[in-house]
Amino acid sequence: MSAAREPLVRGEGLTRAFRRRAGLFGRGVPVMALRGVDVAVHRGEALGVVGESGCGKSTLGRVLLRLMPPTDGRVLFEGEDLAQQTASRLRVLRRRMQMVFQDPYGSLDPRRTVGAQIADGMVIHGLARGGEAREKVAALLRQVGLDPDHARRLPHEFSGGQRQRIAVARALATQPDFIVADEPVSALDVSIQAQVVNLLADLRAELGLALLFISHDLHVVRHLCDRVVVMYLGHVMEQGPAAELFRAPAHPYTRALLAATPSLRHRGGAANPLVGEVPSIAAPPSGCVFRTRCAMAQPRCAEGTPPLAPMPGAPARQLACHRAAELAP
């Protein structure tokens, strides 16, 4: 693989277990939030991660940024294994990867001015301080569509959409190459969501950012992302170019997810709503984790976990399904 094709961020076999305490003195059972996930984000690419609650999409984002270490597997940033870095080297790498959180009310410190919080990254990484930092903060505020004078205010003086812009400005302050955006618009009002989605799209085009966009809203992902990863109970079910995947979803779960998403265009609801709910992640089904809700499940689906493999007839797409051959377009 040539250097140009080497992805900016690559996760290999990422597994993350949490311990859930059982009873007062229980040892705790491991809960697998991620199970052997492979993922790659290229320079300038927007990768969407979709799935329902408990599918591991937020954990994936945090593991890729090494805000939590993976239980197994490794994360490479420009080919460097993040686990092998010294604390000081990791801090240097952190300048280049940033995060935007879901809740714009919880992600800003309520007691410090917006300007100080945007300047944090620059001060920490020695990029600018004092008057120079203030100028850069003003420029960043302008870039995300806010008034530079707002730097002196506290977060509670802003609306949700404005706060999310501030959070984006804070992430941009260190001139990162890679941003993880964890449900950045789902806490916002409908009329504000479009503003923030447009802002992210513009910034990506302008700055050539790589973006990992985590969302449960398929419409937004379709609009913003080049490639999509569909997750269910810690596994990747399907991935591929956004346009193709949404036009012709292959995996039964992707199909069900798309069918369940309400739309202005078709009235009267989903034709065949998926039965049941996402099983508990502490006791996932054997074999294919989706089989308990899958309309196409067969006895063999209970036996082995289907590997994520290139889709027959569409090599750019990957599918984890025992009946992949029948699903190909």
């Binding site: 992600s107 309520p110 990484h125 804070r170 260190t174």
Partner: peptide, 11 residues
């Protein structure tokens, strides 16, 4: 989140 945000900034 705002504490995690500081960690993500490399503070």
């Amino acid at each position: 989140d705002y504490v995690t945000a500081q960690e993500a900034l490399g503070a």
